[in-house]
Simulated assay, not measured.
Amino acid sequence: MNLRPFRIAIPDAQIDDLKQRLRQTRWPAALDADDWEDGTSLTYLQRVSDHWLKHFDWRAQEARLNRLPQFQAIIDGQDLHFVHQPGRGPAPMPLILTHGWPGSFIEMERIIPLLTDPAAHGGDAADAFHVVVPSLPGFGFSAPPAGPGCSARHIAGLWRGLMNGLGYERFGTQGGDIGATVSLWLARCFPEDVIGAHVNYIPASFRPAMGPSLPPPSADEQAYLDTVATWASTEGAYAALQGTKPHTLSFAMTDSPVGLAAWVVEKFRTWSDCDGDIERAFTLDDVLTDVSIYWFGHMLDASYRIYKENRRQPLSFAPSERVSTPLGVALFPRELPMPPRSWLERVFDVRRWNAMPRGGHFAALEQPDLLAEEIRAFFRPLRVK
C-alpha cells in the first residue's frame, strides 16, 4: 500500500496567486444582478469573492483539517488520500464514507466524531465505527487517474483494496451523490466484503432490467422516471457538459477561481435545504473551503471526467440479477429526485427506507447528527453480536 501520513500544506505562492486572480476578476453583465434564474447571482458571487479575498483564512482551515488523521496510499497504481479515524467502543465496525461532486472529503468532517465516538455525543459506544473517508481519484489530494476508465465501478474496487489493505476484511459503506454510486457498486461487486450499504441518494443512472417478461413500471415508478426526465431538462446542463466535454469546461475553471466558485456555489444553493438562502445551510467559510480544495488541487478535468466515465459504465442490471448485500436509504426532503422503494427492490435487499425531517443533497454537512443516527440505526442489526 505504501501507506504514509499526510498533511495539507498549500504553498504561499498558490495562495498569493489565488488572491491576485480574485483581484483581477472580469465580471459579466446580468439582466438582473440579484436573480438566480439564469445561474449564479452576480451580486451574491461578488459577495463570495470579496469574502474569499479579504476575510477567508485558508491557513486557519488548513490547520483545522490537519487535525484529522490523514494518509496517502497507493492502491492498484492509484495514489489515494484519505482520513482514517479509529473508533472508540467495544467492537467498532469498519465503515467507508464517500463524497461526491461538488463536495470533497470535508463533507464528512462533522460526522466523523459522531460515528467514531458515539458515546461522547450522546450515543451508545456499541454503535462505534472505524471510519475511512477517501478523496475520489482526481478530487482533493488524491492523484488524478492516469488514464480512462476510472468510473464509480472502478473506484469501488479501489475502495475494497484500500479497506483490505488497512486490515478490514469486511466493512460497511455509505455515501451520497457519486459516493452513493460507489457504495452501490461495492454492494453489487463485493458482497463477501460489504456488510451493508447505506446511501442518502439513488443515482438516476440506476436502472433495473425492464422488458416484456418483467413487470412494467408502476405508477409511482413511472412518475419518478418522468420527474427525472424533467429535472434533467431544466437542471441537468452541468451533468451533460461534465459527462460529454469535461476537458473543455476544465479550461475555464482551472483559470478562473470566480468561475469555479460560480459553478459550485449554485449547486450548494440549489441542492441544499436552505430555501434559497445558502447561508442557512452553510457558512461562507464552509463553501469556500470546499471550493479552495478544488482550486488548489488543480485536477478539475479529472473531477469532471468521472461523469463521462459513469455514463460509459451505468448502474444497470440484467433481468435475473439480484444484490444480496443489505441496503439502507435515507430520504432527505430537499434531495434531487428519488425513486420509490419498489424501484430499488427490483434489485436490492432494502432493509431500511427512512424519510428524514430536513436536509438536502449534502446531508453529512447539512445534518450530520441526523445522518449519523440513521447510519447507526441501519448498521445496528448487521453487527456481529
Rank of each mutant, 00 (worst) to 15 (best):
F105E: 00
D16K: 08
A63P: 04
P28H: 08
G236C: 05
L288R: 00
P191Q: 06
P314V: 09
G77I: 02
M253L: 15
T230K: 13
W295A: 00
E335G: 05
T270A: 15
F139T: 09
L241G: 08
R380D: 03
P333T: 06
P208M: 02
T173H: 10
V48Y: 00
L214T: 00
P246D: 07
R351P: 04
E374S: 15
N200W: 07
V265E: 08
V228H: 08
P11T: 11
D38Y: 11
P314Y: 09
A143Y: 11
I75Y: 04
L186W: 01
P118L: 07
A237K: 10
N2Y: 03
Q24N: 14
G122P: 06
N200K: 07
L249D: 12
K19F: 01
T270P: 02
V350F: 02
G276Q: 07
H361T: 10
P340T: 10
R311H: 14
M210L: 15
V265G: 02
L336P: 11
R351K: 15
P246T: 09
L3A: 13
V329H: 04
R380S: 10
G167A: 09
P134L: 08
A91G: 07
R334K: 15
R376V: 04
G165Q: 04
Q85M: 06
D38E: 11
P212L: 12
D32G: 07
D369V: 13
A262E: 01
F379V: 03
S104W: 02
A30N: 09
F362E: 01
S142E: 04
F206Q: 12
V350K: 12
A223R: 15
G100A: 09
D286Q: 00
L95A: 06
S292E: 07
A302D: 08
H154E: 04
L331A: 07
L284T: 03
A204R: 11
P145Q: 06
F141Q: 04
F362T: 01
A128D: 01
P134E: 04
G172M: 09
R26A: 05
A302Y: 07
R358I: 01
P5I: 06
L166S: 06
T244G: 05
Q174P: 04
D117R: 00
T116W: 03
V194L: 05
L162A: 06
L327I: 14
I178M: 13
T181F: 06
D17P: 00
M356L: 13
K308N: 12
S104T: 12
G149E: 00
I293A: 02
Q222V: 07
L166I: 11
P90A: 13
P212E: 13
P208R: 12
A63L: 12
L3H: 08
A126V: 13
I111W: 00
D57K: 14
L68I: 03
M163L: 15
A197M: 03
W52R: 00
L186C: 10
C274W: 08
K308P: 08
D117I: 09
V323Y: 12
P28K: 13
A223K: 14
R47K: 12
P113W: 01
I111T: 12
L158E: 04
